[in-house]
């Protein structure tokens, strides 16, 4: 039994690894928790587990926390900005129904991105010199040539007389058909209406591109 008897108040600063009991000192706990012979010993702890007296870990954790905070704030700002934002759109002029006398008319008041206006033309030749690519360049595969003339008068949009500067309605001369890629800004293929003349009904199957 003698090995079980241990003094109650061991010396204050004992660092003996066989010391069994923690010392009731004012500092943080014992130097050594002691390890049983059978267990692979735990490493000597300098104080309570996890406590980092230098404060270094705390600063690091704080930094990480603030970084997370900044990231979250950035995300929230992004969300709010997309919710509140949005590109502005402006519809191009919608061609009016053709008035009988072919005077120029403007469609409802949107400001298109037309770069220049052309004088009104009489029917059949529309096509402003706008740089807007479009059906204007309807030099295209008009399968049925004959229809174009009649279709022209039938559809208000195609009325060349209504050629507002904004809308190249070169379609007057030919059946409308597939337009070239909208992304292209074909520089005024219809600048001088020549193309339209050439794309008289049935004339060409190929889109005129410049």
């Amino acid at each position: 039994m003698s090995d079980d008897t241990i003094s109650i108040l061991p010396p204050a600063d004992s660092t003996d690894s066989t010391l069994v009991f923690p010392v009731p000192t004012t500092g943080p706990g014992s130097e050594e928790t002691g390890s049983a012979p059978t267990a692979t010993g735990s490493a000597p702890t300098a104080g309570p587990v996890f406590v980092d007296a230098t404060g270094r870990r705390r600063r690091r954790v704080r930094r990480v926390g603030l970084t997370l905070l900044v990231l979250a704030a950035g995300y929230l700002t992004l969300v709010v900005s997309t919710a509140l934002g949005g590109p502005t759109v402006d519809a191009p002029f919608l061609p009016l129904p053709a008035p009988p006398d072919g005077t120029e008319r403007h469609a409802s008041g949107h400001a298109p991105s037309v770069k220049h206006r052309t004088a009104p033309r009489s029917g059949g030749k529309a096509g402003s010199g706008s740089r807007l690519p479009d059906s204007a360049v309807n030099a295209t595969q008009s399968g049925s040539a004959a229809s174009s003339a009649s279709s022209v008068s039938a559809s208000p949009s195609s009325v060349s007389s209504a050629s507002t500067s904004a809308s190249p309605t070169g379609s007057a001369s030919a059946g409308p058909s597939a337009s070239p890629s909208p992304g292209q800004t074909t520089a005024a293929p219809t600048a001088n209406g020549k193309s339209h003349a050439s794309t008289a009904p049935g004339a060409s199957h190929r889109p005129v591109k410049s």
Binding site: Q141, S157, S167, P176, S177, A178, S179, P182
Partner: peptide, 19 residues
């Protein structure tokens, strides 16, 4: 004898799709 076109081409207006 029908032609297929995009909406703006069918209607005869400028391209509504812009960069």
């Amino acid at each position: 004898g029908y032609h297929f076109a995009t909406v703006s081409a069918a209607v005869g207006m400028a391209d509504p799709v812009k960069p």
